[in-house]
Design a protein around this nucleic acid. Structure first.
Lengths: 153, 153
DNA sequence: TCCATTATCTACAATGATTGTTGAAAAACA
DNA sequence: TGTTTTTCAACAATCATTGTAGATAATGGA
């Protein structure tokens, strides 16, 4: 995602106004790698601006999404998450315990819909969600993590 | 998914009661390949039993999920979808226009998290959602479908 | 078959995430 | 600085889903 300064520029140049609230949200998102929900962006922003409303956060997040600066993401954790990493094609790691989401920096160019299996769909993209346990949620086995299990695909 | 008769058996043997509503829901799910939402199961069931409540549908769907007969699925269409196909490992095709969901009967045993990209996650499974246009939503080009585009992964 | 037990039913209210509305306030640009 | 237009915060409303409660029905045994 771009810096708050670049986003300011971008907002102005697209006829959007740049307010203290928006700058605050830009700052919160900057470098956030945890794919926050609107709620958690609001919680962080509230630390700087107590009166900022959740509505404003949603609004700004969807403005950013419209400009292609972040991507709304639904990985089945009940809320929409926002991914500020739009530059590198990537997939996602989701913790099935705590819901933590991280980017998986890899592409899978060999991934194809097998011949005849497409049911007539004109497929344009694929998203992979890898599910497992994040480092924090793993049971410790004699001081280190339990052995890695086989990926079921 | 099992037949209504088998499900009746299964429900009884797990201390659940078999009611007319439940049988109706079993019948509706039987052979449904479109991954219906609770709402659409309710709509179909209502054709046979006008008074059946949405709550009952949810309840029965989650009973079936608990018994492993169907799988709740979130593919980002705003509602939970239910997949009666639990026997064959598979992934999903989602229409980005109408939200139609279909099974993609294929497994990708070669799909691995690249060495060092797992960020410490202990990955156990992967789900792939292929997005595109279903046959009904495709623009027609001189009588037949437009050419297939490249899958972006 | 009939009873007693226990689960399930429907109707209704409540939840949590998200979106709509409105008048007040603030940013942009002349 | 003034005017225009957007955005703000507070509040109400929505949608999918879940909780509650008393009425009802399925089950298993007498």
């Amino acid at each position: 995602m771009r810096t708050p300064e670049e986003l300011t520029e971008l907002f102005r140049s697209t006829g959007r106004k740049v307010t203290a609230q928006r700058l605050c949200i830009f700052r919160v998102l900057q470098g956030d790698v945890t794919h926050p929900s609107a709620e958690s962006v609001h919680a962080l922003a509230s630390r700087e601006m107590e009166t900022i409303s959740l509505k404003t956060v949603y609004q700004t997040l969807y403005d950013l999404a419209e400009l292609g600066e972040i991507v709304p993401l639904d990985v089945g954790t009940g809320m929409t998450r926002f991914d500020p990493n739009v530059d590198d094609p990537h997939h996602h790691l989701v913790c099935r315990q705590c819901g933590r989401v991280r980017d998986l920096a890899a592409s899978f160019p060999e991934l194809r819909v097998p011949e005849g299996a497409d049911l007539g769909y004109q497929v344009g993209s694929a998203e992979i969600v890898f599910r497992g346990l994040c480092p924090e949620c793993q049971p410790e086995v004699r001081g280190r993590r339990a052995s890695v299990t086989q990926v079921q695909t």
